[in-house]
Simulated assay, not measured.
Amino acid sequence: MGEKFPEIQGGGSLILAWQVRNKKVLVIGGGEVAAGRILNLLNADAKVVLISPRDGLNSEVAHRIERKQVEYYDRKFEPSDLDDPAITMVLTAIDEPDASTQIWKLCKEKRIAANIADVPPECDFYFGSVHRDGPLQIMVSTNGNGPKMANIVRRRIAANLPPNIGDAIAKVGALRRKLRVVAPGTEEGPKRMQWMSKVCLKWSLEDLCEMEEQDMDELLQSYAPDQIPSLSQVRLGEEPGTWQFDGSFGWACVV
């Protein structure tokens, strides 16, 4: 009974990484806000369907259409646009409050997740301010209270990150994929996670960035005996029995 547990802080959002790769997302509107939404969706490999009169297109949105990066319809939204069962979510970015609310209500009837730009009560989810460096994505959300503040906080966080953190994470991801080939069984899961954690702790950020495919193959030989050599030991080809996890940590990561 003496244990202490985290206090509940209501009013937050459940922040998730929503996988929309190859899924259809409907964007209504073609202005500056829509341009940002479309970029986020394309970066997530979504199939974007855009509905907006051509005379309201932002130059960036027009560029996406010209490059055929989106499926485009030159007209205003129609209720029948939501009849496609493949639509995963709807994003509106139009300067018509009444029309936006109507779209929101239609989405609720069809149980389609929707985001109505600049109207927090009519959003199933929010867009935060995102920092991107290769596979690394960091999102800051103010839960609709202050989008500009989210941008300021995100910039401050990004300014304190190592400049090569994205490369290091990409290398760690490649090593994890190789490890799953070496030890594919589900029963190996806990050991794989612990071993990868030890590598992230012992190797410095610079070591991880410098790691090449041959280094990964050599390093994986230490998985079975559950030992962690340094990068220099890997390249010197020392025997696994001489490797020790000495507790000297470089940097910590959770991947």
Results as ranks from 00 to 15, higher is better:
Lys76Leu: 14
Asp118Leu: 01
Val119Cys: 11
Pro85Glu: 10
Phe77Tyr: 13
Glu96Gly: 01
Leu106Tyr: 08
Lys110His: 02
Ile94Glu: 00
Ile87Cys: 11
Cys107Trp: 02
Ala114Met: 03
Ser80Gln: 11
Phe77Ser: 04
Asp81Ala: 05
Ser80Pro: 02
Pro97Met: 09
Lys108Asn: 15
Pro79Arg: 09
Trp104Asn: 03
Ser80Ile: 13
Lys110Ala: 03
Phe77Glu: 01
Ala113Ile: 10
Asp84Phe: 10
Ile112Ala: 03
Asp83Val: 06
Cys123Leu: 11
Ala113Phe: 11
Ala114Asp: 00
Glu109His: 06
Phe125Lys: 03
Lys76Thr: 14
Thr88Leu: 14
Lys110Trp: 02
Ala93Tyr: 01
Tyr72Met: 10
Ile94Phe: 00
Asp81Phe: 07
Trp104Ile: 03
Thr88Lys: 12
Ala86Asp: 14
Val90Asn: 05
Ala117Glu: 00
Met89Val: 06
Cys107Asp: 01
Asp98Thr: 15
Phe77Leu: 05
Tyr72Val: 13
Ile103Asn: 01
Ala113Tyr: 07
Thr92Ile: 01
Thr101Phe: 13
Asn115His: 11
Ile87His: 04
Pro121His: 09
Ile103Phe: 08
Ile94Gly: 00
Asn115Gly: 08
Val119Arg: 08
Val90Gln: 07
Pro97Leu: 13
Trp104Arg: 02
Ser80Lys: 15
Pro85Ser: 08
Pro120Leu: 15
Leu82Ala: 06
Ile112Asn: 03
Leu82Gly: 07
Lys76Ser: 12
